[in-house]
Amino acid sequence: MSFIGKRHGLAETPPVAAVAANALALQRLKETRSMPARQLPATRAAQGAIRIENVSVEFKRNGATSIAVKDINIEIAAGEFTALLGPSGCGKSTLLNVIGGMVRPTRGETCIDGMAVREPSATCGVVFQQHSLFPWMTALDNVAFGPRMLGHEAPLAVAREFLAMVGLEKFARAYPAQLSGGMQQRVGIARALAIRPPVLLMDEPFGALDAQTRSIMQEELLKIWSELKTTVVFVTHDVDEAIFLSDRIFVMGNAPGCIKDDIRVGLDRPRTPEVVQSPGYGSLHRRVNRLIREESMKVFNGTVN
């Protein structure tokens, strides 16, 4: 247990950004290498706290400046499952990309465990909407890519472990094109988690799946999350999905993108699809739905462009 203190020391060093973040990820990977997955939560509970300070993102298109998100301030605790919920065009994906370092904010700063995010790094695992697996690699090699990049000694062993976690060990040698959409997303989740990132960013990961598959994937995701306890930021426009999965929902509004409400979901865990019949669900759903509808109507009526 002595390395917990050591890691705390590292996390509070001034932002040397990605290099340090990668060194941290590497060290974490080495420490956790030989441990069975079930022991992990206790050892890394304090990681993955996100702080977003006064973040604005502007895009320049044909000389005109459009504001994607404006003055966002959010703090997400380590290990929290949060949803960014909003109608299309509210900048929720942009905000996710800011956390992941894929978009640089025009103003403001994002920190993960006290370190400023400057560029994409192994601090954040990312699961994209679709087609993000490397098509030239087998499922196994896709999952092994991260451990390999971070200098892990046995990347294939790690990859097998995580493929098994999403139930796809039998498809290790298949190429992405030979897998169904749902299977591809499971490989994507395994790939993102295989480097044991403090933060998992998910950009409408189940948006392209059919309703049945989606519901199964949601349950599966919660099961995995309850084992790894990583911080999750989940972008969706589906109210039910957000409530079913999250501890906390940030409802976003349009033009410019902003946080309209910060809602705590107090529903018991572990959650099953029957959660919709629990007493708190209905009022929560109505409340969130009203907020989303207001924003969608604004766009629909052309109040905002």
Binding site: N22, A25, L26, G100, G101, M102, E119, P120, S121, A122, C124, G125, V126, F128, H131, S132, F134, F145, G146, M149, L150, R191, A192, I195, P197
Partner: peptide, 15 residues
Amino acid sequence: VEDQHLNAARCLGAK
């Protein structure tokens, strides 16, 4: 090359 592939690789520690 897909930006998404480059970004995915960066998030997995690729330089």
